[in-house]
Design a protein around this nucleic acid. Sequence first.
DNA 1: TGACTTTTTGTGGTCTGACCACTAGAGTAC
DNA 2: GTACTCTAGTGGTCAGACCACAAAAAGTCA
Lengths: 255, 255
Amino acid sequence: MPKENAHSKTDTHLTMRVVDHFSAMIEDGRLHPGDQIPPERDLARSLKMSRASLRAGIGYLAAMGVMNVRHGVGTFVADGPPELGKASISLMGALHGFQPWQMFEARKILEGQLAALAAERGTEAHFTALAEELAEMYATINDPAEYLIHDVRFHRMIAKAAGNPILAALMETVTSALYDDRRKTAERSRGLKQSADLHKELYRAMRAKNSAEAQALMEHHLSMAQSAQDREIAAVPRRRVSGKSKSSRTANTSR
Amino acid sequence: MPKENAHSKTDTHLTMRVVDHFSAMIEDGRLHPGDQIPPERDLARSLKMSRASLRAGIGYLAAMGVMNVRHGVGTFVADGPPELGKASISLMGALHGFQPWQMFEARKILEGQLAALAAERGTEAHFTALAEELAEMYATINDPAEYLIHDVRFHRMIAKAAGNPILAALMETVTSALYDDRRKTAERSRGLKQSADLHKELYRAMRAKNSAEAQALMEHHLSMAQSAQDREIAAVPRRRVSGKSKSSRTANTSR
DNA sequence: TGACTTTTTGTGGTCTGACCACTAGAGTAC
DNA sequence: GTACTCTAGTGGTCAGACCACAAAAAGTCA
């Protein structure tokens, strides 16, 4: 396996030369989040390669979430919240057979711990922000789509309050795979009341700096969510895939 | 804000059309890990786009670790162990200022939980494999480079025994950021004896299905490793860095 | 003056088709 | 058999042109 290691000088692939170039600039502090890089035409000339090759490298960085390319505007160093692996989890699920219960298990561990840490380390500002999202959740209890937005923000704020951006990024990675499905599946309103109440308890536990309770409540909350989803799946059976087409080594991609 | 997402039919970017195309094929089961996709020239014709655009999409998938491109041979669907985000964490560290202690905190949580799960779910085959790696560790106790290989395998086997590939992939993501540095820093031999003994205790706890003890031992082990790294940093002061940018490329000595 | 519309400018996105570089296997000589 | 050479197939790079989009500038009209 070509375990490409960072910062090889004689890297043959031009793509990797570009990646290394920008990696070095970022790690050296010559590039910061939000910075715009020069136009592709100029950059290609100064790096002595064709624009096509340069674009391959930029595309690679963009896929990793390090760069942010905006058509007609420019290319920027990513500045938003850290995102690891992006959509890869959903693909990885298909590739390696991730099971829904495994996702929830991972979430329980990560978010449970995050809630505990937030209880210990959260500041007044964090708790205030949590309270505001909580209020919004109650206010939009009859609008599942809107509710979901504040629900997500609430969880994200907990991650922020926990003070560990790495754990927050990992949570984001796992969660994002489930987000799309949830967005499409408008939840029943009656479920939202119960959900909001649970969040309120969670909020109180964190504000009281009771980390053990916060963790337990979070895990309980996610268990409920898991049950809800299981029921959803049972109600709307998923399409089944035809058997193992192990046929030829070369897959036919055209329809 | 533009949370671009999956499976848009009218996606303007050709790059994303390619990504969606293969994502769909993978999720439908028409493509499996290890499968080879058709040559770029044929594929470009059948997808009705230029080879350049097709390559952009393939490059994107390759960056996400979904595809595996081999010059002169062909392009394949990834079949190795799941890897989320690849090298992104080290870059993210530079971008968002990840601190070493945050990495260890994340590791403690993930690997601690993994050890507990392994104790509960591990099979005889798993424990046997662990015992073999343990033996290799004692055998190579005077060869830090070789020792490290078995050390990593030991931890990886724990992750496998835990039976949750998502958590395993997350651990891999966090750990890989530290691996390169560790490889360069030859450890002290006397530290390895202590490390091996700790792994042995850990092994025994797991085999005895004592999940609580396994988790505690793993966390203790990682705490020791963290202390060792802190000493390493203190002994070899880093080059000064300006402002907020701080290199995450530091040595990790003990495990 | 002020607000709206049109044009210009600068950026990334795509196309074409040619040629280079690598790999693996077939063919050949010994 | 072994080692070498050749060849076909694949991804990698190049060049230059043109398209599409977004923001800013210029023009237009009340």
